[in-house]
Design a protein around this nucleic acid. Structure first.
Length: 312
RNA sequence: CGCGGGGUAGAGCAGUUGGCAGCUCGCCAGGCCCAUAACCUGGAGGUCGUCGGUUCAAGUCCGACCCCCGCAA
């Protein structure tokens, strides 16, 4: 008989994992818990989370709690799990990029605990922006961790880890997709192995833990006093979310792609300098960064050359 | 109707009070040069987002619509 699973997830990072569980006959996804539909995009169109769309396509029960901490949410979920159809309890939760803190009493409901797929090699990069952090910190490799959840964030015992190398020009978006797929490939066998009692959870070395915060657009404002190498990594890491930008002539300009250059400039650090058909900025460590692609406010993305030509 | 910028040559942009549609780059041809992404000469390439209105005359003024983008989420 298939293990009964409740899946918690919201973003695109979680959809491959959900799909992997849905098509695996060892599991039955009895319900999906996701965030409420939210106004999204330029016109604030009310949009369902991608996870909800997939769940509905498979006729899986969907819960969207406005506030998951409330008694109401707890009672509703517990009631569902206790119904005859689910004969008492589910075997486990799988939580992938749900986006909210799940209260302990809800985590306590499944028989065998809660499994989380996290997009970094824990204990490194605990928190919400693990993919960006790996690139921004200059890590050579990263990966996914499948772990048991406990009371602290990304703190539980590890069931499995898979590593991948970070490409020298890889962006946050590209890495996000690769890790998302890697997580989905890893999850089913590890989950089954754990529920079959064949995998022994290993504690993390908490002394090595690092943390990353939830990012906002404001975090993408470039600080040109940092080193050129740091900024180059940040531009890659934060592409496409939250994006990196700088103020210029009273307008916001997104910086999409940069290159560690050996060109020099007479301008002060942080000032855009046009040299021939190149755009160069001196950074805090005295090294220069060439801006290859950018996007002025209200315009489409363009190359530095196009930007310069249009300004003459 | 959340706020705001914009659609003009292949690309990026300018276009004053309506009066022959321009700039830089690119492209094509030729020239210069040891050579060139440099320089010189010539050339092609536009139904000015769409539809309608005002006018002798609309890129420009008015109305509607389509599309792209920044903020916000």
């Amino acid at each position: 008989m298939a293990y009964k699973i409740v899946f918690f997830g919201t973003s695109d990072f979680s959809t491959p994992s959900l799909e992997a569980l849905l098509k695996d006959t060892r599991f039955e996804v009895v319900a999906v818990v996701t965030k409420p539909d939210a106004p999204i995009g330029r016109h604030q169109t009310l949009t369902p989370p991608p996870v909800k769309v997939i769940a509905q396509e498979h006729d899986v029960q969907v819960f969207q709690f406005e506030k998951i901490k409330t008694d109401e949410s707890y009672d509703q979920l517990r009631g569902f799990l206790a119904s005859a159809r689910n004969d008492g309890k589910v075997d486990a939760y799988v939580v992938v990029s749900y986006g909210k803190i799940i209260p302990q009493r809800i985590l306590d409901l499944p028989k065998h605990g809660c499994i989380n797929v996290h997009g970094s090699l824990l204990p490194l990069h605990r928190g919400a922006s693990c993919v960006q952090a790996a690139i921004a910190e200059g890590d050579q490799k990263t990966g996914v961790t499948v772990m048991l959840m406990d009371a602290e964030m990304d703190h539980g015992d590890i069931l499995a880890q898979k590593e991948i190398a970070i490409g020298p020009e890889e962006t946050g978006g590209q890495l996000h997709n690769r890790l998302s797929q890697l997580g989905a490939e890893t999850l089913p066998d590890i989950l089954a192995g754990y529920l079959d009692g064949k995998i022994t959870p290993q504690p993390q070395d908490h002394s090595l833990a690092t943390y990353c915060k939830l990012l906002s657009r404001e975090d993408g404002k470039l600080d040109w006093t940092k080193s050129a190498a740091e900024i180059e990594r940040l531009v890659r890491a934060y592409n496409p979310w939250p994006g990196t930008w700088t103020e210029w002539a009273g307008k916001r300009i997104k910086i999409l792609k940069t290159f560690l250059s050996d060109l020099t400039s007479t301008k002060k650090a942080g000032e855009l300098n046009v040299q021939n058909d190149k755009l160069v900025v001196i950074c805090g460590d005295g090294n220069s960064l060439e801006i290859l692609e950018l996007q002025p406010e209200g315009k489409r993305a363009m190359t530095a050359k196009e930007f310069i030509v249009g300004r003459r």
